[in-house]
Design a binder for these strands. Sequence first.
DNA 1: GGTGGCTTGTGATCGGTTTAACAAGTCACA
DNA 2: TGTGACTTGTTAAACCGATCACAAGCCACC
Lengths: 227, 227
Amino acid sequence: MPRRKSLDHVVVPQAVMRRLPVYYRYLGALLARGTERVSSQELSRMIGITASQMRQDLSYFGSFGQQGYGYRVRDLHRAITEILGLHRTYQLVLVGVGNLGRALVSYPSFANRGFRFCGLFDNDPRLIGSEFCGLEIRPVDTLADFLHQCPVDIGVITAPPEVAQQIADVLVAGGVPAIWNFAPTSLKVPKGVIVEHTHISESLMVLSFRLNNPEEADTSVESASNQ
Amino acid sequence: MPRRKSLDHVVVPQAVMRRLPVYYRYLGALLARGTERVSSQELSRMIGITASQMRQDLSYFGSFGQQGYGYRVRDLHRAITEILGLHRTYQLVLVGVGNLGRALVSYPSFANRGFRFCGLFDNDPRLIGSEFCGLEIRPVDTLADFLHQCPVDIGVITAPPEVAQQIADVLVAGGVPAIWNFAPTSLKVPKGVIVEHTHISESLMVLSFRLNNPEEADTSVESASNQ
DNA sequence: GGTGGCTTGTGATCGGTTTAACAAGTCACA
DNA sequence: TGTGACTTGTTAAACCGATCACAAGCCACC
Ligand SMILES: NC(=O)c1ccc[n+]([C@@H]2O[C@H](COP(=O)([O-])OP(=O)(O)OC[C@H]3O[C@@H](n4cnc5c(N)ncnc54)[C@H](O)[C@@H]3O)[C@@H](O)[C@H]2O)c1
Ligand SMILES: NC(=O)c1ccc[n+]([C@@H]2O[C@H](COP(=O)([O-])OP(=O)(O)OC[C@H]3O[C@@H](n4cnc5c(N)ncnc54)[C@H](O)[C@@H]3O)[C@@H](O)[C@H]2O)c1
């Protein structure tokens, strides 16, 4: 029987946390394909990690498999869904309705997984007042007010880097507990506020580095860094 | 005098490589501000890492500072520019001219750093033949031919995940040495081909995990993972 | 019911990354 | 020119994450 650990006083290593979405993705694929059972051996080979690593990762959260049998795909998928918090919904605001912002807002998979955009903000008079994906684009000066009326879980910053910090400050002051930042700036926020930075440009620079520094080592390497 | 190591037989650790763009970004900011000199102490405090770590990282590539003085911002910036390969230009093709693809193609910073889009491909008849950012959108069936005529350094995949692997195969067959993938799929490529995956959705899932698992630890954590 | 083959979860080991410490060298200024 | 404060590059130690190895347990089949 799958048994979830309390996790209250267990510290989950960074590296483990970053792999959870990968497990989630592959389990989703197996589920869609109708596969019932999977062993750590099989799943880890698909992903390209060791079976040990996968089992050890899961062990931070509990026991989800059965010896001699493996994991029931449905159960493990549900368990990871809950671990990742993807069983509930989140209210998002997005600030900076430019090219990248529009791509995020119109991406259907987010809504499908419970990430709901409830407010779009910009400072461009040509955009303000118009509609995008069924949402009115509001003046960024009204963001603070909006946050007082409507509780928001995640603030998305897709505005230019020069204004990212001041937007973050407004979000924090408005009680937003987490920021998803796409601007190439490091945000300073009070302890307790979660910032997740998505490094698009950094990722391209790493690619350029790797092109110029032929590694003897293996080629399938993915994002990593911490600061 | 700044002295660059040969680096031919030195293996640069993953973790070090991922921090290079961060150094590059902060040095660029200092340069723009007109700062001439910086010590590992100052720079590392700005970034939020230890001075030891920064010096150790740089030591993989050579000696760029002066004892008792620190680093000349201009020199270190130039050194890292070259280490990252940002002093030369790259030819890129992008496959899947959707919302995300258009955001990338129209992002001016890439062109400014030498990343030049020279071909856009899609399979949507409504898009094919039209122009975007001065480039014609071509049928994806002509990609293989295009690659034979025009050497390409980086292939960008912003098409749906279902077709990502087959696009990657065409890119590889056409001799493209590096792939920048935005589709949520792990690509299988021959050894020697570089794949850099930018995990937008994964990043949001990590945010959701962190919202639901209050870490006692510090809050400023950035992307990491390897597979 | 017993046996063999598998597979999990976990303590032990290995390797890599981060931090600490210091000798050597530079600058500023008397 | 000499002295002191400062900072680098590097070697060593501590820490953390990945891999290994195995006892415990389950399933299937005889
Ligand atoms: N597009 C990319 O490929 C890409 C890649 C890497 C990083 N980024 C970063 O993502 C962010 C968005 O990029 P983009 O390409 O969508 O840029 P964009 O210029 O298309 O959009 C930026 C939007 O922010 C709005 N804005 C400007 N100042 C504002 C303010 N004070 N308050 C609210 N809104 C404001 C602008 O009106 C515009 O609509 C930027 O920080 C950029 O550096 C983008
Ligand atoms: N937009 C986002 O916020 C976001 C977030 C995470 C991941 N992604 C991923 O990035 C990719 C692009 O996302 P998007 O939002 O731009 O999607 P999109 O639907 O706007 O664009 C996809 C484009 O690919 C084209 N295409 C489809 N099949 C093709 C083929 N066989 N060959 C060439 N082109 C083809 C489509 O015509 C379309 O223009 C997808 O894989 C998506 O899962 C997007």
